[in-house]
Design a protein around this nucleic acid. Sequence first.
DNA 1: TCCTAAGCGAGACGGTACGTCTTGTCTTCCA
DNA 2: TGGAAGACAAGACGTACCGTCTCGCTTAGGA
Lengths: 207, 207, 207, 207
Amino acid sequence: MEKMDRRVRRTRAMLGQALRELILEKPYDAITIQDIADQADLNRATFYLHYASKEELLMDSLEAQFDALVTQIEGEKNGRPMWESPVTGRIIFEYVAENAALFKVLLGAQGQGYVMYRVLNYIAQVDEEEIQEAFGPNALPVPDVILARHFAGSLFALVSWWLEHDMPYSSTYMAETVHQLCAVGVMPMLVGMGAAWPVNGGEWPTA
Amino acid sequence: MEKMDRRVRRTRAMLGQALRELILEKPYDAITIQDIADQADLNRATFYLHYASKEELLMDSLEAQFDALVTQIEGEKNGRPMWESPVTGRIIFEYVAENAALFKVLLGAQGQGYVMYRVLNYIAQVDEEEIQEAFGPNALPVPDVILARHFAGSLFALVSWWLEHDMPYSSTYMAETVHQLCAVGVMPMLVGMGAAWPVNGGEWPTA
Amino acid sequence: MEKMDRRVRRTRAMLGQALRELILEKPYDAITIQDIADQADLNRATFYLHYASKEELLMDSLEAQFDALVTQIEGEKNGRPMWESPVTGRIIFEYVAENAALFKVLLGAQGQGYVMYRVLNYIAQVDEEEIQEAFGPNALPVPDVILARHFAGSLFALVSWWLEHDMPYSSTYMAETVHQLCAVGVMPMLVGMGAAWPVNGGEWPTA
Amino acid sequence: MEKMDRRVRRTRAMLGQALRELILEKPYDAITIQDIADQADLNRATFYLHYASKEELLMDSLEAQFDALVTQIEGEKNGRPMWESPVTGRIIFEYVAENAALFKVLLGAQGQGYVMYRVLNYIAQVDEEEIQEAFGPNALPVPDVILARHFAGSLFALVSWWLEHDMPYSSTYMAETVHQLCAVGVMPMLVGMGAAWPVNGGEWPTA
DNA sequence: TCCTAAGCGAGACGGTACGTCTTGTCTTCCA
DNA sequence: TGGAAGACAAGACGTACCGTCTCGCTTAGGA
């Protein structure tokens, strides 16, 4: 945790704040560094003292929030893996709902590829770690990575659809549904089979 | 189908070809209209006679390929819905493999948001139509849109992961796996329940 | 003499004109490329299509005028060397007077070093050629370069003084005076001595 | 003569020293305040505590040297006016030679206009005073200012030429030559004529 | 077969954003 | 109290790309 000048922290916060405000106002690609500086009441050159690009600022600004979210989830789920209860999903959908306007832009029709990519990856990573903690590495008939990616893909797709359609269902309902589709029916099947997989007689191909 | 000058068709083909080649050479965002024109041995102004932007060209160029893919799938699956056999998935993974370098860029770490968005949407759309043809509209305990989106999300996530890791498994294996995770275990559960859904006593919430 | 697009010539002319106007309005160093572009009703980027710097534009713009001046002098002096008549000087002083405001800035207190340098060099060069045409190379007791430089220095100093003090004497008087100081009394002395020079017994030192 | 803190004097000396060193290393215009501060191992802000600009520092730094030079000349020439002996010129050329690298930059191709201007003016001023001390004000057939300016221009032009060509002749030779060209032949002519001047019958025009 | 409209090359230009560079001011803290 | 350290405003710089335009050449397809 690097020590920073109070002014520096304040300046960066203002830049992040400014970017978030602008994202809600106009297409992301149409936002210039000058716009951000103006919105933050700072000089354009000052932006470059802190960030090399819009992207860097956005990521820096999003990271803190994600960290907080993960911490919250860790606290609430009490050690139970996510496939046993929809609570993790619920917290995520609620968090998304709170920042709906922002994420709708970032993940939607004019979303940014690298944001989508990193969000998807991030979810998959967390899922994979949870799977391995529960069963040990590759103890299931599907490679952990693939299973995690399957979970993440489903969650990502449902979240983005939900946002794009202005959250037509409750967070709770969405969480229950994704839980049903990903966990109920699938996990028992996998766990029951052990590390066997019917398609090729229990061996994982490597190419 | 508009009639076009032979020259015009040829010019557009050269532009599409040029863009595809450049995508394999350098980051998509770093490709300029001038680059495309140079690569296609055309004048920059000529580009604007045909397209308003890189994106338009890219979409125009991708559409033909997607159309051909859909046609092929329709032909091979013989009317059987995709959740009864992994053949649809296999064709898709094979198609992706053939254009691996291109899609790796478009869907990967430095991918383009609008491409990802449209691909995901496209898959979900096709899936939804197929579900409705098989069961009628919203005859299952999960809204068709959501189920379709779940399928699409999983497929998308696995495809992009597969590309990003240079296709460590065979197309067949990937298809079997996504089939197992999305269909086997899930579809019987849904079909068996009729249009009922345990979480809220069989009624769909609307907000 | 390179052939140029009519538009290009027009654009350059407008830039030159703009710079001249601005020089009369504000300190040369305070003139920005943007100022010039604005004054010429052109885009700043357009400036860079033609010149790399203010300096380049200024020189390009001055050269034409100097060429015209030299041509005029050649015509009027009828082959007689400048030390036999003050006509050359008169034409120069008259020309300077016509562009007094401009040259006052360029050669005066806030003048530009490289302009002064080139003007001084230019005069010396012309003088040297004239000396050599009249007497042959180094036929006088002073090296041609030095004599030419002496003439040029005197002329330059008197012109800049004259401008700085808002031309207190007539062009004719100034020309007569510089002729008297440089030619009358000095040239006969040099020519009479042949290639001998008292200070070191007639030999030129080389270091 | 203002009293100054020892530290302040030291700081200024270091700044002057730094600028002199840098002038020998890179084009004058390319030297930034930051460069000077770095070279002097001082903070940039400190520069502004003492000078408002590079120019001010340069002038402050040069002035001391010029003062010393004038003092030396006064001492050596023993009251004899410069047109009676080349000693003044010799001292100047020797002084220039000692600081050749510096003056070559300041007075040469990429020299600074305001330096040239002030040097030229300074010489002319000294010359004019000397003329007036010897003959009384405007006792010669040429205005004192003009005669002084003629001397100064010649000296300046020869010095700058000499530097630019890496001092191909000795200081002594240069001094003798400039003396010959400016004084011998010219001064007797002027003094002999009294305050009369052939071009306009002895009256000085005023415009 | 001509001729005429279209496609295209060439390149000037306006416009906009970029990232960098200096400059000058300020504040905070240290010796 | 002079100076170090460094954040910041201000604004010019030179570059890059975009989209539009004009001016010609050429070339194919209808007269």
